[in-house]
Nucleic acid binder design. Structure first.
Lengths: 236, 236
DNA sequence: ACCTGATCCTATCAAGTGATACAGTTTTAT
DNA sequence: ATAAAACTGTATCACTTGATAGGATCAGGT
């Protein structure tokens, strides 16, 4: 069963307030992101989660109320991570759009967002396998994931669509949306881990180091520029 | 547990030889593709599978040896479907590359492959939710899926990379591979079902009808042309 | 020092899992 | 027609799953 029911369990005390408890809580959460990403919600058994976090079984219920609670907490953590990575760019785009930007400014902003998105999906930081977790979130349709979905829309897709539409001097119609989605789609092939058919195995890239990341960004920037330029020519 | 162990069970008889048996076998298989796509391997219980196929529980073991056998059969079915959709185009590309094609011919071939790929990922035919199944196959890392992975490489990625490399007059290096992957990535955002963060929900597209499909294809063709043209200019 | 709440552990539960045994029924071949 | 094989159904197995009970231990505040 997917965690679609609302959280009903309320904890008796306030776990995670002592130094020791806070530590194990973090450990469980971090391991959970990893294991949920690797195995999926159903695939990750509470026993595996507990073992990998080096705690005993009831610790999960103690700290998070239930397996579902832990899943929700993991989603929350990922959402905060995405926020920390993309919020600034999204805000920047919004203020730019509020003014009277030139097409060139709009393109530069779009390229910056694309760069940020590439960073996001190729990163290995903070919550390891955060990206794989998001990839899984794509197919698992728990309502618990709606918040994450909405956030990705708000911080990534929406700003890009707005930028593209304005750059082309068009309303926010299907064409603008399609173009923006396709531009972001370019980057999705290069997700860090957990994609068997993605570009990285094809390229023989076991890991994305700094050099490769720069190459990738440069090419995607070039291509996006070409896309926008051509579309602008056509629309004028 | 993911189905990574080789198939050892051999059936006592030859099920599916009678007319009636063949029918129920197909029914189970079709339902299985749907349910595996929706729920994942672990998530799809044998009881759900049996219920949805309107057969009793042991029918799965009778016809497919085990749940894993059914999963393998489902993968096989999808692989044949992909083959039927992409094999002709892949062969066409290969013969073109064997000759001495002009850049323009290469571009046209690439656009044709892109069109075919868009058809593949947006289709609703044959095995319903075949695409969602493939999306899931992307993250579930059962060795049983390797055949499907390899096939996608062989019939889609590899030909596209070869075409791009040749069109740019380059060897099959990282740049060519990246460009080809990114081009295909554009289409991936528009996968038919089961993608919460994909482009379709963003566009408010509940379903992709013929009109929308044409719009999408036209834009992606335009963008791909722009990408290749710009890259050719730079590389000359 | 001491007490309260936070933390951790062993043992256990009820439900659900994939799989099998085995008997009954239908279909096909001769 | 009749035997053999293909098919279907009921009951049940051994196992894993998420969750809980209830007690032992620890830490922090007074």
């Amino acid at each position: 069963m997917q965690p679609n029911s609302p959280e009903t369990v309320s904890l008796r005390y306030r776990p995670g307030t002592h130094a020791k408890g806070e530590d194990t809580l973090r450990r469980i959460l971090e391991v959970a992101i990893e294991v949920f990403a690797e195995e999926g919600y159903e695939g990750a058994s509470t026993r595996t989660l507990a073992d990998r976090a080096k705690v005993n079984l009831p610790a999960i219920q103690y700290y998070f109320g239930s397996k579902e609670g832990l899943y929700r907490a993991a989603i929350d953590h990922i959402a905060k991570f995405v926020e920390s990575r993309m919020a600034a760019l999204a805000a920047q785009a919004e203020t730019l759009l509020a003014g009277d930007p030139t097409p060139d400014e709009l393109l530069r902003m779009l390229l910056a967002m694309l760069d940020g998105f590439v960073d996001l999906v190729t990163t290995d930081d903070a919550p390891p396998s955060a990206c794989l977790f998001i990839t899984r979130a794509e197919v698992e349709d728990a309502t618990a994931l709606d918040a994450l979905h909405n956030q990705m829309m708000r911080l990534v897709s929406q700003p890009c669509m707005d930028l593209v539409a304005r750059a082309l001097g068009r309303p926010l119609d299907d064409e603008a949306k399609i173009r923006a989605s396709a531009i972001l789609g370019q980057a999705l092939m290069f997700k860090k881990k957990g994609t068997k058919m993605g570009a990285c195995p094809l390229l023989g890239w076991d890991a994305i180091n700094e050099t490769r990341l720069q190459t990738l960004k440069t090419i995607l920037r070039e291509q996006t520029t070409a896309i926008i330029r051509a579309a602008m020519d056509k629309n004028s």
